[in-house]
C-alpha cells in the first residue's frame, strides 16, 4: 500500500523510495512537487511590483545618469553638454538641492568661460547659498565680479574684487594675474605708474609660481596684460582675439 495515497497494490510490492512504499503518481509528486498557486501568483505580483518600482522611480535613474554624463563631459572640457545634462537632471527634481547646485555650477561656469560674467554671478550665488563652503564656486564668483566690473569699465571695483581673490588664494597664478590685469586697467585708465609697476611685479610673481607648471592659458593672459600696459588700450578678450588670431584665450580680462 502506498504510504501517501493509500493505493492498494494487492499482492504486488509497492516500489520503495528510501524504504517507504510509494506509488508512481506519488513518486512524481514528490520529485516534481509543484509550487502552490498562491506562491506562483505572489511571485508574479512581486516581479510586477519591481517593474512598477523601476517605472515609478525612473526619474531618479534618468537624473543620476545625466549627472554622471555631465561629470564626464566636464572632465572632457565639454562644458556646454555638461550644463545641458545637469540642467535636465535638475529639472526632473526641482527640489533636490544636490542636483540643483551642480546644474547652477555648470551653467555659471559656462557663462563665465564664454565671457558673460554678469550672467554667471546669479548661478554661483545660488550655489553658495546652498553650500557656502564650495571653495571653487566662491573663487569663480569673485572672478565673475571682476569680469562684471571690467565689462562695466568700473576698474576701481575690478581692482578691489581682484584683491579679494588674491586674499583668497595668495599663491595662485590665476589670482595674481587677475590682480595684475586689474592694476593694468587702472594704469591704462590713467591712475598712475604705480599700477603698471604693481602689474609687472605680479606678472613676475605669477611666472615664478607658474614656471613649474607651464600653462599656455596663463601665458596668453600675460600677453594680454602686457599689451594693455604697453598700449594703454583696454580691449575686450574678443577684440584681442581678433587682433591676435593665434590667441584663443577667452573669459579673461
Amino acid at each position: 500500500m502506498c504510504t501517501y495515497c493509500s493505493r492498494d497494490f494487492n499482492e504486488a510490492k509497492a516500489p520503495l523510495i528510501h524504504g517507504i512504499p510509494t506509488c508512481n503518481d506519488c513518486y512524481q509528486k514528490l520529485y516534481r512537487r509543484p509550487f502552490p498557486t498562491w506562491l506562483t501568483i505572489a511571485a508574479l505580483l512581486a516581479i510586477a511590483f519591481v517593474i512598477f518600482g523601476f517605472w515609478y522611480n525612473r526619474n531618479y535613474f534618468i537624473a543620476y545618469s545625466k549627472v554622471k554624463f555631465a561629470a564626464a563631459d566636464f572632465r572632457r572640457g565639454d562644458l556646454t553638454n555638461a550644463a545641458v545634462s545637469a540642467r535636465t537632471a535638475a529639472n526632473l527634481f526641482p527640489n533636490e538641492q544636490s542636483v540643483g547646485i551642480l546644474a547652477d555650477f555648470y551653467d555659471g561656469y559656462l557663462q563665465f568661460v564664454n565671457g558673460n560674467s554678469a550672467q554667471a554671478i546669479p548661478y554661483f550665488e545660488r550655489c553658495l547659498k546652498i553650500d557656502p563652503s564650495a571653495t571653487f564656486a566662491k573663487f569663480l564668483l569673485a572672478q565673475a565680479y571682476v569680469g562684471k566690473a571690467f565689462d562695466e569699465s568700473n576698474y576701481s571695483l575690478m581692482y578691489a574684487s581682484a584683491q579679494g581673490i588674491t586674499n583668497m588664494a595668495p599663491v595662485n597664478v590665476n589670482s595674481l594675474l587677475t590682480l595684475a590685469s586689474s592694476a593694468a586697467c587702472l594704469y591704462a585708465d590713467g591712475r598712475g605708474n604705480r599700477y603698471a609697476m604693481e602689474a609687472n611685479g605680479l606678472i613676475e610673481q605669477a611666472q615664478r609660481i607658474g614656471a613649474t607648471n607651464s600653462d599656455v592659458y596663463a601665458d596668453l593672459y600675460v600677453q594680454r596684460i602686457k599689451y594693455r600696459l604697453a598700449t594703454k588700450k583696454i580691449i575686450s578678450p574678443d577684440e584681442y582675439t581678433r587682433l591676435f588670431p593665434e590667441s584663443t584665450n577667452r573669459g579673461k580680462q
Binding site: Y60, F93, E96, S98
Partner: peptide
C-alpha cells in the same frame, strides 16, 4: 529600483 532613490537622493 529603490536603493538609488533611497541612498543617493
Amino acid at each position: 529600483p529603490a536603493s538609488l532613490p533611497y541612498q543617493v537622493f
